[in-house]
Design a protein around this nucleic acid. Structure first.
Lengths: 183, 183
DNA sequence: ATTATCTATAGATCTATAGATAATGC
DNA sequence: ATTATCTATAGATCTATAGATAATGC
């Protein structure tokens, strides 16, 4: 049956929000059309009238997740706060609401051009936030360079801390990386 | 039909070698039983007589890839050589023969216990190699700590360099991380 | 007799489409 | 009349198993 324009827009948002979480938890290829729509309380058919394909939903859902994640990190007043939050055990343990870059990076090379572009734009957004928090004594070039290296450290540490099967090692990865970034 | 013991062992090795490459290129969940056995010139049925399940093959193939990768990096005489090789464009562009940790880390949290244990053991192996190449002036604790932070940097940089859709940005990630690790 | 491999197939799941339905919005 | 959603289903692909085959290795 048909629903009102507002209701349809609301449904669209609900699928997007659920998808933004599910793709981080299960991966883009691991989150099926059924699971994505069911999590929003709808049947899989509605995905195709709203987004046309799973690929396009994935692209929008990734964008949604990147924006949400960016709003969270924007709250960090200093570089130290940014780093501490990113490398916290809480962030590690909440994949579905955490940084989409860390959650999805490994499978991005196999995704559509649209998804890869959205991902790259999101990564540039993170770099901008980091660059803006780098020491004022540095030139712009140096701040950008530091931001690149810092982002790689952050993402690598989070990804590894989530992957290992030993909580002590996982904590040690986060701690050592934080310490290294403090210098 | 039946084959000789030696031939069977050889077939097993061939599947493992092909799988070690395929899981890095397509991900563990992305590499299907058909593709895995076909790449070794066999039908999918043989996988089940050799390994019992895809999960067990994945575990052994990951181990295989970790050993092969460890042999390559063992050739690096110094920390600087290790880092330069890891962050080289060649390594970035050869996922199927590169570091399995960087290729698979994001999906490891969703894998079986066996796969996660193999992954963690492989990561410890990398840490041992790195620790052994850390400055002699440091205490063992400090060397281990530096190795943890260095590994996170290396893996994060490679994963991001592969994911972004812009070759200049990709190169910049590798360069900035190398520079940061040189200090 | 044992067993590595192949063939055929089961049963689940995946993405996608066609057509029906029913309420909206002109 | 338009259209968001649902239902049913197509067609592909996934992991796994059963049974046949045929050569090994006792």
């Amino acid at each position: 049956m048909r629903v009102s324009k507002e209701k349809a827009a609301e449904n669209r948002e609900r699928i997007l929000k659920a998808a933004a979480r599910l793709i981080r938890e299960r991966g883009i290829s691991g989150a099926g059309v059924d699971a994505l729509t069911e999590a929003a309380g709808m049947t899989h058919g509605s995905l195709y009238s709203q987004f046309g394909s799973k690929e396009r939903l994935a692209e929008e859902a990734l964008g949604h997740a990147l924006v949400a994640s960016g709003k969270t990190t924007a709250g960090a007043a200093t570089l130290d706060q940014y780093i501490s939050g990113y490398l916290s055990p809480e962030h590690r343990d909440q994949v579905g609401q955490g940084c989409p870059v860390a959650a999805l990076a490994c499978e991005i090379p196999r995704q559509s051009t649209g998804v890869r572009e959205t991902f790259t734009a999101g990564l540039r957004g993170m770099l901008r936030q980091l660059t803006g928090r780098m020491g004022a004594g540095l030139k712009q070039r140096q701040r950008e360079e530091k931001a690149l290296a810092t982002l790689a450290s952050l993402v690598g540490a989070l990804v590894l801390a989530r992957a290992v099967n030993d909580s002590e090692l996982s904590d040690a990865i986060l701690r050592a990386t934080k310490k290294r970034l403090d210098t």
